[in-house]
Amino acid sequence: MTIEFDWKSGVAAKDWSKTKEIELKKLYDTVSAIHEEMFYLRERDEEMQELNKETNSKMATLSFFSLLLCLSVAGLQIWHLKSFFESKKLL
């Protein structure tokens, strides 16, 4: 025994039994679906742009603090080496 299912979703799932009027309704439903998808994609794009801006801002802040830390450590190393060599009377 074989059972076949014809699974449809979206515009294809609706029952269309009239002629021209039904074709117009099909086209209208298709255009509506595309229109809704465009709004959804536009909303997602705005969310992604906002996330991108936030990420860039955080990365710039972290990069600045990383650079500041590296320069501080380099300054401390120079100060320590200078005082070390002065105490040994090599400088």
Rank of each mutant, 00 (worst) to 15 (best):
M1N: 06
I3V: 14
E4D: 10
E4I: 08
F5D: 09
D6F: 04
K8E: 11
K8I: 00
S9K: 13
S9L: 05
G10C: 02
V11L: 04
A12S: 15
K14S: 05
W16L: 06
S17K: 10
T19Y: 09
T19G: 13
E21H: 03
L24H: 10
L24N: 13
K26P: 03
K26F: 10
Y28F: 06
D29E: 12
T30P: 01
T30K: 10
T30H: 04
S32G: 01
S32Y: 03
A33L: 08
H35M: 05
E37T: 09
M38H: 13
F39P: 02
Y40S: 14
L41M: 12
L41V: 03
L41S: 09
L41F: 03
L41P: 01
R42N: 13
E43D: 15
D45V: 00
D45P: 00
E46S: 11
E46D: 12
L51W: 09
N52R: 05
N52Q: 14
K53H: 11
E54N: 15
E54S: 13
T55K: 15
S57Q: 14
K58R: 15
K58H: 10
A60F: 07
T61I: 10
L62G: 00
S66R: 13
L68V: 07
L71Y: 01
S72N: 06
G75W: 02
Q77S: 13
Q77N: 07
W79S: 00
H80R: 06
L81A: 08
L81E: 09
S83H: 11
F85L: 11
S87K: 02
S87M: 00
K88T: 01
K88I: 03
L91E: 00
